[in-house]
C-alpha cells in the first residue's frame, strides 16, 4: 500500500558528547536513497527538530575538524538543508542557553535554499502531533 511517511527526528542530545545527534542527521538524510527499498508511491519525509541541549548541534563555527579531524554536526545540518530537509530549532531552548539566531549554521555557502527555522516549542509540538513517527535521539 502506497504510503507517505512523515518522521520527526527529535534531537535532545548535544554534539560531541553523544553519537546520537549525528545518527539523527545521517538517518534523516538517508531518506534520499530509501527509495531503493520502497515500493512505488511510498516515500519517507523527515523533519529534524532540535530541543534542549540538542540546539547546540546547529551552532555555527564549530571547530571539530580543526581539533579532531572530524565533521561537526554543523556540517551535517548544512547538508540536511542542502537536500531540502526541514530543520526546526526551539526558540526557548536557544534563549535559555544564550544562543542568538545569528549564531546558527547556514547552508547557503553550500548552495542550500532552506534555512534553519527558529520556532517556539508550541510549533514543534504541533509537528509532533502531525507526524506519523517520532524518533528521539
Amino acid at each position: 500500500m502506497a504510503r507517505k511517511l512523515k518522521q520527526l527526528y527529535l534531537v535532545q542530545r548535544p554534539p560531541i558528547k553523544s553519537e546520537n545527534p549525528k545518527l539523527a542527521y545521517t538517518h534523516a538524510m538517508a531518506s534520499q536513497t530509501a527509495e531503493i527499498y520502497l515500493e512505488d508511491g511510498e516515500e519517507v519525509i523527515p523533519t529534524l527538530a532540535m530541543v534542549g541541549d540538542g540546539v547546540y548541534n546547529v551552532v555555527n563555527n564549530q571547530q571539530l575538524m580543526k581539533h579532531y579531524g572530524l565533521n561537526s554536526n554543523e556540517n551535517h545540518v548544512q547538508m540536511a538543508l542542502l537536500i531540502d530537509l526541514k530543520v526546526l530549532v526551539c526558540k526557548e531552548d536557544l534563549e535559555a542557553r544564550g544562543i542568538s539566531a545569528d549564531r546558527l549554521a547556514d547552508g547557503s555557502a553550500l548552495g542550500a535554499d532552506m534555512t534553519i527555522e527558529v520556532v517556539p516549542f508550541s510549533e514543534i509540538q504541533k509537528e509532533m502531533e502531525a507526524t506519523d513517527q517520532i524518533l528521539c535521539f
Partner: peptide, 12 residues
C-alpha cells in the same frame, strides 16, 4: 545495510 533500509522498514 545502510540507513535507508531502516527508513524503508519504518515506512512499511
Amino acid at each position: 545495510h545502510s540507513m535507508d533500509w531502516y527508513l524503508a522498514k519504518c515506512c512499511q
